[in-house]
């Protein structure tokens, strides 16, 4: 599994470029100058204490949060206030949330076909075919006619991943995808994410699943107080952390 690092082509294009990005919530300076470049196909795990700005960082990438200074480029397009631009970028960037955020009034299949039909203007039949393909992939095709409320947490999160994939995104953002799950369901979700990684999907994962980080990440970022404190390969990050804060954090989560 630990061969993940080998498959990244060093000459591939940047899919995300963040330059000196700042963000405030009221007076609170939550992101204090983020510089980050992510190549196509690269997989990044972001960790750090709560309140360090990890979630805010990835939420800025698809403009669920607005940044107030600096620049963000997604696939070469700069994120500005232009609504059309934002909707276009959001369609290219998949996002998976901590609390799944499935649409409870729609069946699983309808959850998956909604984006392709209304945003990608796909026909209903094509959208359903795509949806069933991705439901097979997350091993949940037999639940297509059910409503989200009838599924377990792990199943719901896998549906949420499939829903994002149906939009054929160029990059996937995961915001603590396993934190709200019962312990016995974490693995089924991580397995789906590992499969996705093996297919070469670009990913940014905010997570404290260190095993996952070790096995699939190209880089692990450690954030604290709104800054990227340390950024390194998983081997270096876990075995030879450079920064005092990182060492402290790792000692706290790896009992």
């Amino acid at each position: 599994m630990n061969t993940a690092n080998a498959d990244l082509n060093p000459s591939s294009k940047n899919i995300i470029e963040i330059i000196d990005m700042h963000k405030w919530f009221g007076d609170f300076h939550v992101l204090r100058g983020i510089n980050l470049t992510i190549k196509r196909g690269e997989r990044i795990v972001v960790c750090g204490p709560s309140g360090s700005g990890k979630s805010t960082l990835i939420r800025c990438i698809n403009r669920l949060e607005e940044h107030q200074r600096g620049k963000i480029f997604v696939d070469g397009i700069e994120l500005t206030n232009d609504l059309k631009n934002i909707e276009k970028i959001r369609a290219e960037v998949g996002m998976v949330f901590q609390h799944f955020n499935l649409f409870p009034h729609l069946t699983i299949l309808e959850n998956l076909t909604l984006g392709p039909i209304w945003v990608r203007k796909m026909s209903k039949a094509d959208a359903e075919k795509t949806a069933m393909y991705f439901l097979e992939k997350v091993h949940i095709a037999e639940q297509a006619k059910k409503f989200p409320g009838q599924l377990s947490g792990g199943q719901q999160q896998r549906v949420a991943i499939a829903r994002s994939l149906c939009m054929k995104p160029n990059i996937m953002l995961f915001d603590e995808p396993t934190s709200a799950l019962d312990p016995e369901m974490v693995k089924e979700v991580l397995d789906v994410m590992i499969n996705l990684a093996e297919e070469g999907m670009s990913m940014i994962v905010v997570s404290h699943e260190m095993g996952f980080a070790k096995s699939v990440a190209h880089r692990v970022l450690f954030m604290d107080f709104g800054l990227i404190v340390e950024s390194n390969t998983p081997e270096e990050f876990f075995e030879n952390p450079q920064h005092e804060r990182t060492k402290l954090f790792l000692s706290q989560i790896l009992y």
């Binding site: 669920l64 369609a91 649409f103 984006g115 209304w118 829903r163 939009m167």
Partner: peptide
């Protein structure tokens, strides 16, 4: 947020 992240207007 889920709707927005799919690109729905």
């Amino acid at each position: 947020e889920a709707a927005a992240s799919l690109g729905l207007n």
